[in-house]
Design a protein around this nucleic acid. Structure first.
Lengths: 139, 139
DNA sequence: AATAATAACAATAATGAATACTGTTAAGGA
DNA sequence: TCCTTAACAGTATTCATTATTGTTATTATT
């Protein structure tokens, strides 16, 4: 018998924080957001629960942006845009390549492709208007 | 190991009801008094807890008055007056015979007397003024 | 070196089984 | 008849177990 999962207010709060925003937050962001309501919250708990939720498929990782991993409560495959200046992560709901890419890779390499993640990088409109440049190398 | 005693709101309420009055109430009186605050209280619980408290020395029985047992949260030995008309039970703080009675009985009969209860019967001033008579035989 | 993330462990809090307590109903007693 | 007790199923409390958290130190990454 596996380890039983228990309910906890902190865990629930972490999930709500991610589900309640579309900014694709980092662990630190979640921590700062919840601190006022949960003064005794610890950063370790945030990291632990983010890992827990990702492993259980309730959230997904968007990848590491400027040194911090970012998360998304929308687990269905969709595209993202990452600003290399301010680190903003945006959804790209119009850019869905369908199953063509999956099928191509599947046929060409003989792999059972089940989905994909497509991430764009560049400058968001806000950063482009203020003519800022990225502070870290974008990859 | 004996039966463990647990806390319950109903039990606490019954004790408070008795401790919060000097009218030497009956089970029914306690029940009616607590009903508004505890709508699901049952008369059986009142009886059970009165017995429980008496057996544990937290309250004492003043005796049966007009068919109903009456209780007192003051467990130190003291005298009472019972009105045979309205059933009122009064404390008689000035009428304390001390240990003389106990010692007399103890010597005369060779018994280990530890205390006594002295109860007077008659008409309280209220009933005497309205010239009522007792409705039940007083004993 | 500085910051993000993980590991270790004691302290805390949630869970579930055991069972004391209560509500209800029926039966006993004065 | 009315006051009180008994029986029993349903409810609520307790407590041991252990998942979760807070803290601190350590590792990883840039």
């Amino acid at each position: 018998m596996g380890r039983a999962v228990r309910y906890s207010k902190k865990r629930e709060a972490v999930l709500s924080a991610i589900q309640g925003t579309d900014c694709h937050p980092s662990a630190e962001w979640v921590y700062q957001r919840l601190k006022p309501l949960h003064p005794d919250l610890s950063l370790g708990t945030v990291y632990r629960n983010l890992t827990f939720f990702r492993e259980n498929g309730l959230i997904q990782s968007v990848g590491v942006v400027q040194g911090q991993e970012r998360f998304d409560a929308v687990v269905s495959p969709h595209s993202h845009f990452v600003c290399n200046c301010c680190g903003t992560v945006l959804d790209l709901p119009g850019i869905e390549p369908g199953t063509d890419l999956d099928r191509t890779v599947s046929r060409q390499y003989g792999l059972a492709v089940q989905g994909h993640k497509l991430t764009f990088y560049g400058l968001c409109s806000s950063c482009a208007n203020t003519q800022q440049n990225f502070k870290e190398e974008p990859l």
